[in-house]
Design a protein around this nucleic acid. Structure first.
Length: 233
DNA sequence: GGCCAGGACACCA
DNA sequence: TGGTGTCATGGC
């Protein structure tokens, strides 16, 4: 009686990541989209809320929730901190998983209390120190933490999201099995440690992801044409 | 009506 | 330690 072995196909890394390749991808994107220096939000505080609200959610749904908070004058630490999560929840309904996210926002606001309610103040600590603390906050995982640290606090950490995974999988630098930390280490090892570059690079990735590199590849007018291996992920 | 969208976490084997 | 279910809305 033989043992039935389920075949496991793990694609090898098809291209060896190096500094030149990663920078050439960045320059192609920047050539197409211009300099982004970006996160949609008028303040560092709004960036933090957006980072939590966009968890597994399209940005258009996040914008609706942020719009409700803005119209009610709640897009500030001082205003929102006063509300219990049960009152935040209905305001962010459009962002999906709203009860969960309301609790996560409340947890983050309690954490931010130690920094005077100012996300920029996170940068007064070292990156490893503040990142560890942020990851202890319930509902703040690696991507959310890094988005807050990079885009709200200005610290040099590369954000890995679904777009990053998809695009670099199709470029042959990832095999689709890597952990968040592994992908982040790849970027850290092959790019200069520069918050401005990390900010703009990830912004370019998101833009490409939104406009071209979707789950079901449409592969319209892609600036990475010729480098993409057109693999589905 | 189903799939997808810039995740995170609890639970289970 | 890795896999799976859950949270849940809105656009296509």
């Amino acid at each position: 009686m033989g043992v039935i072995v389920t075949p496991v196909t793990v694609s090898p890394i098809l291209r060896r990541p190096d500094r030149r390749f990663l920078l050439s991808v960045y320059h192609l994107l920047r050539e197409r989209y211009g300099h982004a220096r970006w996160w949609p939000g008028e303040s560092a505080f709004e960036v933090c809320l957006g980072a939590i609200l966009t968890q597994n959610t399209s940005w258009s749904n996040v914008e609706k929730a942020l719009g409700v908070l803005r119209r009610r004058g709640l897009l500030s630490f001082q205003a929102l901190r006063k509300l219990p999560s049960t009152r935040i929840a209905p305001l962010i309904r459009s962002s999906g998983t709203y009860r969960v996210k309301a609790r996560r926002i409340a947890s983050f606001l309690a954490f931010l209390e130690d920094y005077g309610g100012r996300p920029r103040a996170l940068a007064r600590e070292t990156l490893p120190e503040v990142r560890t603390k942020l990851l202890r906050v319930k509902g703040i995982g690696p991507e959310t933490a890094d988005s807050i640290l990079l885009y709200a606090a200005g610290l040099p950490v590369f954000v890995i999201d679904a777009y990053t995974r998809r695009i670099f999988f199709r470029l042959g630098l990832l095999n689709g099995q890597e952990s968040y930390a592994e992908i982040q280490a790849l970027f850290a090892a092959n790019l200069p440690r520069d918050a401005g570059l990390f900010n703009d690079y990830h912004a370019q990735i998101v833009r490409l992801g939104k406009e071209v590199c979707r789950t079901r590849p449409r592969c319209g007018d892609c600036p990475l044409e010729g480098r993409c291996l057109k693999r589905g992920l």
